[in-house]
Design a protein around this nucleic acid. Structure first.
Lengths: 227, 227
DNA sequence: AACTTTATTATGATCGATCATAGTGAGTTA
DNA sequence: TAACTCACTATGATCGATCATAATAAAGTT
């Protein structure tokens, strides 16, 4: 008899450390611009400096961390201008992803998108901002995944995910009313994908992006002033 | 008196090792799919295992190297399907970059693009395939750089540069006739940017891409058969 | 002979220690 | 007081050694 087992957790120590750090940055546990001290992290993880450094180097290449050689290491800090540039790229990439997703989504895909959407709404209702940001990101990542194009996914991850580090700041400072409203900005996109309409998906994504952009940019302006 | 000095070369050992490896992969010195043994590299570079590993991890995140945890490390090997996916993303990203470059190119930018184009032609004439590939890539990178959008640049690097590892295979196996012809496929794009016509730049890029795609894909088909 | 089990080895993963740099602050000189 | 020099310290960069895994070869079992 063939029993099904869950895939084992990320094998190497490095990848697990990288994952934890990435999550912490995305959900705001590690704040934008915050200094990272390799030795401290190593002590916290109970791991050697070497693995932690390897994880950090990986995250640097993924765009979450900035290293100043021989000086210091920080969580990325996006300026206003940088945020604008990211959104310019995001527009191009994610609208393509939305189109593709609308073309290729299977019933299961749509089901799990639907589920993720409801989890976003739940998180909004319960004012759990960390969960909100994580589910929000999961929703987007699911769309990227539906495209079945790993390169599109990885480019989007590289470019878009760091933005969520800002989201978590914004989101944490708002009231539940705003969260719910924000959650609902995902609905038109979800519906367009449901009805497998690439054009509509593209349009829905683009108009939602305009909204998200202005929200994010305003946070970037505030935080960048603290140098 | 104030003397001008050149910026010193890449500071850290790791970054220099990463750079050398990247170049070697791009110009075909390290072949597609080839196994990489960390210890051997460390010995060759006269450096410790740790730094070499750090460089490798960085290059993995950049898409040049694949690590099989606890098993082995290889230069990327793109399958036919993967190449197709990359070109789908490249189309979206690089056409945007071409547009932007046409909008923003300064006279100096255009001059150095022109220069790079001539260097491509030179390399083609002298049948120096390594140089050809490197200059070809430099030409594209220059365009990306003109966009003044680091995120667009890094996404393009991540997605497109690994393709050049294939180019070097293709290019090395052809006769000079083809190299020259290939060099000239860049001309319409150059001209469109020169005349600052975003629309034309986009079109030129897209039609050249169709060509490059079919060339690259054919190599991917050959090499992927070797497992 | 075919198949399983057990050394052996190659090599990736991790560690603890050391080196090197850049920022800090005490001391020194003008 | 200001500016410069020089330890000192924090911490990133690098190293050499060891651990752990997976592929391979050898030995054993049926």
């Amino acid at each position: 008899m063939e029993v099904m087992f869950e895939r084992l957790a990320n094998s190497t120590l490095r990848s697990r450390i990288a994952e934890q750090l990435r999550d912490a940055i995305v959900d705001g546990t590690l704040k934008t611009g915050e200094r990272i001290v390799e030795r401290k992290l190593a002590a916290q993880f109970g791991a050697s400096l070497a693995v932690v450094r390897e994880a950090i180097i990986q995250l640097e290449a993924e765009g979450f961390i900035t290293k100043w050689p021989n000086t210091s290491t920080h969580v990325i800090q996006l300026s206003f201008a940088e945020t604008e540039k990211i959104f310019a790229v995001r527009k191009v990439l994610e609208s393509f992803a939305a189109e593709e997703a609308a073309r290729r989504a299977s019933p299961q895909d749509i089901e799990s998108l639907q589920k993720l959407f409801m989890e976003i709404v739940d998180a909004a209702r319960s004012q759990d901002s960390r969960k909100f940001v994580r589910k929000d990101l999961s929703f987007h990542e699911k769309i990227w995944q539906i495209t079945d194009n790993e390169y599109l996914q990885s480019a989007l991850r590289r470019v878009v995910v760091p933005l969520f580090a800002f989201s978590s700041i914004r989101v944490a400072s708002h009231r539940s009313f705003d969260l719910l409203q924000d959650a609902n900005t995902h609905l038109p996109l979800l519906n367009a994908i449901k009805s497998r309409d690439p054009r509509a998906a593209r349009d829905a994504l683009l108009s939602a992006l305009t909204l998200w952009r202005s929200e994010t940019v305003s946070v970037a302006e505030e935080t960048s002033s603290q140098k």
